[in-house]
Design a protein around this nucleic acid. Structure first.
Lengths: 218, 218
DNA sequence: ATGGAGTTTTGATGATGTATCGAAAGTCGT
DNA sequence: ACGACTTTCGATACATCATCAAAACTCCAT
């Protein structure tokens, strides 16, 4: 099976999900945008969910590569965590669609989305190790690393989620009470909030920030 | 139109959404559980989405009542915020289904879910006022109250979301890497994290906690 | 060039779900 | 027990996901 139509289908689906959500996107429309008939999609993906699995696995790769790169670049655990949160919010916001929706469908059906879950567990394990190292070194308070990891990753996604909605609303001017923050600002806010919340000495956050910035720029 | 079948339909729908999610729940099944034929549902709700609107509006009322009660009971803004986060995570976790999914559908279609959005804005406004008061009094750092509110409310929901998934997985023993924290623990963790992150003097969190507990018990 | 194996695409169709509609059934005051 | 009003229902239109056998295409070996 050639790879190119597969990619084109995923790209078309991705654009449509971004525009109208998963539920409102039909296989027929995805096919039309990929220059195929509806039934032809099933040659490449044996169901709509299989298509979603491919998409969500690919999307999850962004944070995964992020955390692996940050870990390989070293630095104190608190610095790594700070960099990760900032970059994760930015990476999730840069995706064409909201990962939250696919994430939820994946949670509904672990079997169908097992490829995604395997990679997700790697992500969770990597972040947990960073936090555990921070606790061990005394930089972070004596928190439960597993609980912290899930909270942090969820919060990254949640921030991306409301931010996306907020930006869309702002662009349509259809709703009041928008903040119109950009992903950079929101990511920095969340990273600040989280690190201050987890660090033994919150006053040294400024130092963490500087070191993070140095590494980010290199 | 009598109110009682309406309630019964909502209750049945609520149970089914909890079990299998919105997408997997059919109007026919909701009807069966309410002792009606599929087409009869449309006498009470003119579409599946209208049913969702009623449900999500009702669910949103829990945090709204919470924040209004907490505000009326007074106390320092930081104490109010601490109490709110803990109670909000608990309240969301106590709902039969994950508010996240309905919240997402509501965001897709503001017109259909306008009742929900009106109440949601009240909630956002109330929390924003608490935070602004905290900033004004110097208890909280000089953060953007609107940005903080959205982040906090999103994080509450996100915590409830991963917790729900985690608990379900734990009960099915189908997945590793579960934390099996309960809503109380997760809510306390998030409230601690957030308040430490936002307070001018994180060291006084212990005092905030004590005062929050006093008010919670009264 | 051409036959043929393997790959890709398609139209027809089944299965399931949402929503509509007119008619039937039920309720209640007079 | 009549009639207005409310509630329920069966039939059905329409959309969508998925399956399948057949057609169209590709490309190598002859």
């Amino acid at each position: 099976m050639s790879d190119e139509p597969r990619r084109e289908i995923l790209a078309a689906a991705s654009r449509l999900f971004a525009a109208g959500g998963v539920g409102a996107t039909t296989m027929a429309e995805i096919a039309r945008r990929s220059g195929l008939q509806q039934s032809s999609l099933y040659y490449y993906f044996h169901s709509k969910e299989a298509l979603l699995d491919a998409l969500v696995t690919e999307a999850n790769r962004a944070p995964l590569e992020l955390v692996e790169r940050i870990r390989s670049e070293g630095g104190a655990p608190a610095v790594q965590l700070y960099r990760l949160i900032r970059a994760d919010v930015a990476a999730l916001s840069a995706l064409p669609y909201d990962l939250n929706e696919l994430h939820r469908m994946a949670a509904r059906d672990p079997r169908m989305f097992r490829r995604y879950w395997r990679e997700r567990e790697r992500l969770i394990a990597a972040v947990t190790e960073i936090i555990a190292a921070g606790v061990a070194s005394g930089e972070l308070r004596a928190i439960d690393p597993a609980l912290s990891t899930l909270t942090i990753l969820s919060n990254d996604e949640a921030t991306q989620h409301w931010l996306r909605g907020d930006l869309k609303r702002a662009s349509r001017r259809s709703r009041p009470s928008t903040v119109t923050a950009d992903p950079t600002e929101a990511g920095r806010f969340l990273a600040d909030l989280t690190l201050r919340g987890l660090m033994t000495r919150p006053a040294s956050l400024e130092q963490i920030r500087r070191r993070a910035r140095t590494l980010d720029d290199s």
